[in-house]
């Protein structure tokens, strides 16, 4: 066995510039959870089939579990931990708590990230639009209806705030 040479890549996570070793196709999720200590993004399948690991890369939803970390070089990654900086994420989190849209909660951070991307392109999504945006996410506890309501609640809250501003 030979230790492969490091492959340092630089990218932005939640507004912060970071440099990590991305050699050997190490998945972005491993870098986020391990090297960067951002444990909000979750390992569910490693196969792009459940969405627990969903993050945003340049604003678009991306599965962090299988995507090589080198592929985000010079790009901007957002995770659930961006909730302190991003008022839309904060509104989503609050709406999820208001609706008590969770049981075990394991799937939620990925779902919130997909919802964040949805609200960026469609500020007032109808139920069908929310369902379509979240359909690639799996929830085993059966909280789907509350989750859809929470996303619409966040949208309504943000719209009301925008109207007031």
């Amino acid at each position: 066995m030979s230790e492969a040479a490091p492959l340092m890549v630089r990218f932005t996570v939640n507004g912060r510039s970071v440099e990590v070793d991305a050699a050997g196709d190490v998945p972005l999720l491993a870098v986020l959870r391990g090297d960067l200590g951002l444990t909000g993004s979750r390992f569910g399948c490693g196969l792009e089939q459940c969405g627990a690991c969903m993050v945003l890369v340049d604003g678009a939803p991306a599965y962090a579990c299988s995507r090589p970390a080198w592929s985000v070089a010079d790009r901007s990654v957002a995770t659930i931990e961006d909730v302190g900086r991003d008022p839309v994420l904060a509104a989503l989190k609050q709406a999820f708590l208001d609706e008590q849209a969770g049981q075990c909660g394991y799937c939620l951070s990925g779902i919130v990230m997909s919802a964040r991307a949805l609200l960026a392109r469609e500020p007032s999504p109808d139920r069908a639009a929310v369902v379509a945006a979240l359909d690639r996410h799996l929830c085993r506890c059966g909280v789907h209806n509350r989750i859809v309501r929470a996303v619409q609640r966040a949208a309504a809250h943000l719209a009301a705030e925008g109207a007031a501003a």
């Binding site: 444990t39 909000g40 999820f96 969770g102």
Partner: peptide, 20 residues
Amino acid sequence: QPRTDLPDKIGGGAFIHDMR
């Protein structure tokens, strides 16, 4: 009553998987 454990499960390191 709202669940006491839910806030940390949206983003926080609430799970055994997150123990370091």
